[in-house]
């Protein structure tokens, strides 16, 4: 069902946890849908120097969260904003089709954390579009 890489990230997730002094935090998903992702970032000199995540969700939700933290760590804000849910899925050697919608929100959570950081610091957020903070299939009415 899942690729070896998904299973590897699910079994040994990177950067799990809560961050005390974060620069930004973002949450996407909804308990009704069965997936919630929360990402904390620490930004130093415009780079993501540290990142942590917490996820309530299936194997794919945990693996994509873990993967996005690996991809984003050390990147500049501009580079990190270019990460997409699709890129995260590809880095995991793909996800089952049914999971592409509901459990592949990690890049959205990262984006939400970056916007939180930008807003807190009075920086422009022009051109950054946040996906609706909910699952993409509308089961939660979002």
């Amino acid at each position: 069902m899942y690729s070896a890489k998904v299973m590897e990230h699910f079994s040994n997730p990177r950067n799990v946890g809560v961050m005390e002094n974060f620069s930004g935090v973002g949450t996407v998903g909804n308990p009704v849908c069965g997936d919630i992702m929360k990402i904390f970032i620490k930004v130093e000199e415009n780079k993501i120097s540290d990142i942590k995540f917490q996820t309530f969700g299936c194997g794919a939700a945990i693996a994509t969260s873990s993967m996005v933290t690996e991809l984003a760590k050390g990147k500049t804000i501009e580079e990190a904003l270019k990460l997409t849910n699709l890129a995260v899925a590809e880095a995991l050697d793909g996800l089952p089709p049914v999971k592409m919608h509901c459990s592949n929100l990690a890049a959205d959570a990262l984006k939400a954390a970056i916007v939180d950081y930008l807003l807190k610091n009075g920086l422009p957020t022009d051109g950054i579009e946040l996906d609706k903070q909910c699952c993409h299939h509308g089961c939660c009415g979002g």
Partner: peptide, 12 residues
């Protein structure tokens, strides 16, 4: 549970 934001919101 240690990975779940729902759990840590309740207990932290």
């Amino acid at each position: 549970r240690s990975m779940s934001p729902l759990y840590s919101e309740k207990y932290n």
